[in-house]
């Protein structure tokens, strides 16, 4: 006779090899190309911002978990690291360290832990941190250092505006779009590779798309949300462009500049804060796209992806409740 006590539990008795940890680290791997690009263009500053952001996110989560919630250590699940990386990706490389720390406290403390930790937050924590910083420290958050290829000297680089800011400024001064485009220091090809002013992670569309393809292949994200965002932005700005090419920029400009790529592929697809069913993802993505263009074209800020995602995050519970997957054997309506 076996003296061991048998374990009894309900079925199923097997599970696949997936885990929350794996998902988080897969996203981190997908962000590596964008990180390398940021180091390439912003030098050591990029690494400095990353390290501060990640370290402070981990510290804040650990402290809250240990002293306030008094729960298990949740650092190993990787979500704090991911929030740190995304937070760093959303700020300029020359941001003072104390602003990053404040951002991390807001992102993790208010954006995530106050709701009960991973999985319970209605808003993307990194974006909560970013928007808080943007509103509280508008000057620091919008002075973008000019890109300098492989410059590892920690000197104060010159600052310049992002293409979106140049565009907004130009249009509000009444200049025609074609003239603004000509005077712009960077071109489409630069935006694709990342040679433009902007936050750490948002500059290279190409690197972000490579990571996105990896995520889709690993089945961490589905393609619906990014496609819906890209599609709706392209369609909306395309219509505007066709109406008046001299007062509205073309769709390619809108897609490649600013935080659309980073937002659509990594922030909007955050599992916790995005809808569950494809139908819902389409609505959510289209909402983000439309709000982004509204803010960019008519709003006060040159960039609106963060706000758009946060606004649509608020609708997610509603979308989840109203969009149900099709039930097997659901009675079809009599025709």
């Amino acid at each position: 006779m076996n003296t061991n006590k048998l374990i009894v539990s309900q079925s199923p008795h097997v599970s696949d090899k997936n885990s929350v940890q794996k998902i988080m680290y897969t996203v981190l791997i997908a962000l590596i190309p964008a990180f390398l690009v940021s180091v390439y263009f912003f030098g050591l500053d990029a690494i400095r911002v990353q390290v501060i952001a990640i370290a402070s996110c981990i510290l804040v989560e650990w402290a809250i978990q240990k002293f306030l919630i008094k729960g298990n250590n949740t650092i190993p699940d990787g979500s704090a690291i991911l929030t740190g990386v995304l937070l760093a990706f959303n700020v300029p490389s020359n941001l003072p360290w104390w602003i990053i720390v404040i951002g991390a406290i807001v992102a993790i403390g208010i954006g995530k832990m106050s709701f009960g930790g991973l999985g319970k937050n209605p808003f993307n924590p990194a974006l909560v941190g970013r928007v808080f910083m943007l509103i509280s420290f508008p000057v620091q958050m919008t002075s973008w250092p000019k890109v300098q290829v492989l410059n590892f000297a920690m000197t104060d680089a010159e600052t310049g505006a992002t293409p979106l800011a140049i565009m907004k400024e130009g249009i509000s001064n009444g200049e025609p779009v074609s003239q603004i485009m000509n005077s712009m220091p960077t071109s489409y090809a630069d935006w694709l590779t990342g040679e433009m002013g902007g936050s750490l992670g948002e500059i290279s569309a190409l690197a972000l798309i490579i990571g996105g393809i990896y995520l889709v292949w690993k089945k961490v994200i589905t393609i619906h949300t990014p496609l819906a965002i890209f599609g709706s932005i392209a369609l909306f700005t395309g219509i505007l462009y066709l109406i008046d090419p001299q007062s509205f920029a073309d769709p390619a400009f809108h897609l490649l500049t600013g935080g659309v790529m980073l937002g659509a592929i990594y922030m909007a697809t955050d599992m916790v804060t995005s809808p569950m069913v494809p139908k819902g993802m389409w609505i959510y993505g289209i909402g983000i796209g439309v709000i982004t263009v509204l803010i960019r074209v008519w709003g006060a800020y040159p960039e609106g992806v963060s706000f758009a995602i946060l606004i649509m995050n608020a609708f997610v519970p509603l979308i989840n409740r109203s969009m149900k997957p099709k039930l097997f054997g659901e009675k079809k309506k009599e025709k």
Partner: peptide, 22 residues
């Protein structure tokens, strides 16, 4: 004496739905 080990959510009602007890 315990003769088996229950592995699952720590709730009596769920254990009672699983089997008659450990």
């Amino acid at each position: 004496k315990k003769t088996s080990e229950y592995d699952g959510p720590q709730s009596c009602i769920l254990e009672s739905k699983t089997y008659s007890g450990d």
